[in-house]
Computed example of a mutant assay.
Amino acid sequence: MKGRYPSTVSFLLFFVHVFLWSSTTEARIKLPANKTVPAVIIFGDSIVDTGNNNNNLLSPARSNFPPYGRDFRGGKPTGRYSNGKVPSDLLVDELGIKELLPPYAAPKLTPQDVLTGVCFAVGGVGYDPLTSKLAAVPPLTDQLEKFKEYIEKLKVIAGEERTKFILANSVIFVVLSSNDIANTYFTARVRSLQYDVPAYTDFMVSHASEFVKALFELGTRRIAVLGAPPIGCVPSQRTLGGGIERNCYEQENEAAKLFNSKLSASLDSFKSNVSPDARIVYVDIYYPLLDIIQNPTQYGKFVRSICLKSFD
């Protein structure tokens, strides 16, 4: 592989540099002398979930069983949708905050865990409340309510002023939209009976904007909202809509690009109307991931038998 981590994570780490006005990029991030990241807090879906869905026995969207976790500590599943770490863990490790980002639902969160950030993401969630209902998981608004609980815990541990500092200087990631497009709209086709793609992406962006506004009102000031990936190129979607040759499902990819353009514009508009100390940005992951898909040998060894399996 090129570098220490997959390209998308490296891209996000580079983004953190830009986010904090840094001008250097090295394997281990060195922040500018006047910048600090006391914590990383992540909201979203299975891409970044570190184990918040383990006890939800009603949901099929769980990953606390083998083969998940086979390359993790002790080879045990933790609720991460991966054989090992997920991007949430890689980000906090590279920032030098801690090795792993614990789920907020962890039974034994320590004060240090709270001070340095947690993960609220839950596999199966989307901006669309119906997406969560189809996966039998709590809606995105539940992550916001748990974040409010977290803030109260911060106040008990660190006090009011330190809590304000942590919220304002931590990096907040919002990672959603894949389930809305792939599952709710194109697979279950529930929303396609109500909306065409332009109207549905408007609906998604409306919910995304409301969520970001709520985070800002709770005191966060460094918010990174990731766009949709080329979701039509993941194995399951190739199987469903890619034809006999299992090409990328282009209708899904077009929907993702349309959503991304609207999300970016919405965030720019919001940013222009808030205090100048706020850094609220759209992060494009569509094209970096598409480049990996289209040019796999540039990023490491290409094993076709693995790429054709549909474990996602």
Rank of each mutant, 00 (worst) to 15 (best):
K2W: 06
Y5W: 10
S7I: 05
S7Q: 13
V9R: 00
S10D: 14
F11N: 14
F14C: 15
I29R: 04
I42E: 10
D45H: 00
D45K: 03
S46Q: 02
I47K: 04
V48I: 03
N56S: 13
L58A: 15
P60G: 08
P66Q: 03
D71K: 12
D71E: 11
R73Q: 14
R73K: 15
G74K: 00
R80I: 08
K85Q: 05
V86C: 01
L91F: 03
V92Q: 01
D93W: 08
K98W: 00
L101Q: 06
P103R: 01
Y104F: 15
A105Y: 06
L109F: 05
L115F: 08
L115P: 00
A121N: 00
Y127P: 09
D128I: 05
L134G: 10
A135C: 06
A136T: 09
T141A: 14
Q143K: 06
E145M: 10
L154A: 07
K155D: 00
T163G: 02
S170M: 04
V171R: 03
V174H: 01
V175E: 13
S177W: 01
F186C: 04
F186K: 00
Y200R: 07
M204S: 03
S209D: 12
F216H: 15
P229C: 07
G232F: 06
Q237G: 08
G241W: 03
G241S: 07
S261I: 05
S264Q: 15
S266Y: 00
D268C: 08
F270L: 15
V274P: 08
A278M: 12
I280W: 11
I285L: 11
Y287G: 04
Q294R: 13
Q298N: 14
R304M: 13
L308T: 04
